[in-house]
């Protein structure tokens, strides 16, 4: 994407949150490969090394990639959400087409001070476009910005 420099990055804490989320399967993977290593006789590291690499991929590389491929922009009264490591999607919703706005916070997001903004449109495709990993105050500011834009238009 040549114009990705206009995009705002998500909050860096989102990376830490993803790391925490992915560390659960990673830890399970390490435990499982350790057990397999002990149980199966043979060269040391045949199971353990790939298991460890996969765990590192999950905890270190994937959150980094995900973080760097995601971004948003609010320029020109449009919400633009870009996401996807393998399957890229680049969605634009003009403020004038937003039906209502949700700001959601799960327990983990609250722990990291993050929030997810979801805008709903009347369209069947992209009926809701959500953007996770925003700092809570940014999410609230974004909601206000979209809401005032809508109110200005309808009056």
């Amino acid at each position: 994407m040549d114009d990705s420099h206009d995009l705002t990055q998500l909050d860096p804490r989102y990376k830490s949150m993803m790391r925490l989320v992915y560390s659960i399967p990673a830890v399970l993977l390490v435990i499982a490969s350790t057990i397999a290593e002990v149980a199966i006789p043979g060269w040391t590291g045949v199971v353990w090394v790939p298991g460890l690499l996969l765990a590192l991929f999950l905890v270190v590389y994937l959150p980094m990639r995900r973080f760097s491929t995601r971004g948003y922009s609010l320029a020109e009264e449009q919400l633009r959400v870009v996401r996807g490591v393998m399957f890229r999607s680049d969605t634009v919703v003009p403020f004038g087409r937003v039906q209502h706005i949700d700001v959601d916070r799960g327990p983990l997001e609250r722990m990291f001070g993050l929030a997810t903004v979801t805008v709903h449109t009347a369209g069947s495709h992209n009926a809701s476009v959500s953007l996770g990993g925003l700092a809570h105050e940014d999410a609230l500011a974004m909601r206000e910005e979209i809401r005032t834009a809508i109110r200005r238009d309808t009056q």
Partner: peptide, 14 residues
Amino acid sequence: KLQSVEIAQGPIAR
């Protein structure tokens, strides 16, 4: 009358 526009690409398309 459209509501949103999305550009989607799979790995091959990219």
